[in-house]
């Protein structure tokens, strides 16, 4: 291929000496789009160099921060669990629909099974008996006393407990920020 060889040997003109410097001068302040630069930065691996002293300091700091965080979480949970009821206790309204009863009282572990002072009031329109209590958070058993002699558990209770004498008591669990209407 004589022609190919001759083409290969054709001389080139030298470009102007200032071509490269003028290109560099023109591009010096040009920057690639910010999106591209951020993407490239994010994709580029980075290496960190540190002295053992710096590593120890950073490790201590991390341990301290973790310990404080865990402690804060534990205290928060503890506070949440053991927070005493608001002054006066959690308001609880007990209700019994028993229009034929002449009187109804509430007895339970919160009043040592003494009905005195825990008489329910009758809503004449609905025929329902109600009593509002303020109880600290806790676990209680209770029952209604009809006409001063018949004891029945709350028929609307969600839990019941055997009283050991063949009868059942309603169970009431009062938590924090808990208002219950039975």
């Amino acid at each position: 291929m004589l022609i190919a060889r001759q083409i290969r040997q054709t001389p080139y003109l030298d470009p102007p000496v200032m071509l490269a410097p003028s290109v560099l001068k023109a591009i010096r302040h040009k920057r690639f789009p910010i999106r591209f630069r951020m993407l490239r930065w994010a994709r580029s691996p980075r290496s960190l160099t540190f002295t053992p002293l710096q590593a120890a300091f950073v490790a201590s700091l991390l341990i301290l921060v973790s310990a404080v965080g865990v402690s804060h979480l534990l205290q928060s949970d503890y506070r949440h669990a053991s927070q005493p009821a608001a002054p006066g206790g959690v308001p609880i309204t007990l209700t019994l629909s028993m229009p034929e009863a002449r009187s109804v009282s509430v007895v339970g572990t919160f009043n040592a099974w003494d009905q005195k002072g825990f008489e329910m009031r009758k809503d004449q329109e609905k025929g329902a008996w109600t009593l509002m209590l303020h109880l600290p958070a806790g676990h209680y058993e209770y029952a209604f006393v009809l006409d001063g002699k018949e004891v029945i558990p709350d028929p609307r209770a969600e839990l019941y407990s055997d009283d050991g004498f063949g009868n059942q008591n309603a169970v009431l669990i009062v938590g924090n920020h808990h208002e219950r209407t039975s």
Binding site: L24, K30, R31, S44
Partner: peptide
């Protein structure tokens, strides 16, 4: 591409 504009001189 990493921002070294002077390196472009080698390509030019």
């Amino acid at each position: 591409l990493d921002g070294d504009a002077d390196a472009y001189a080698m390509l030019v």
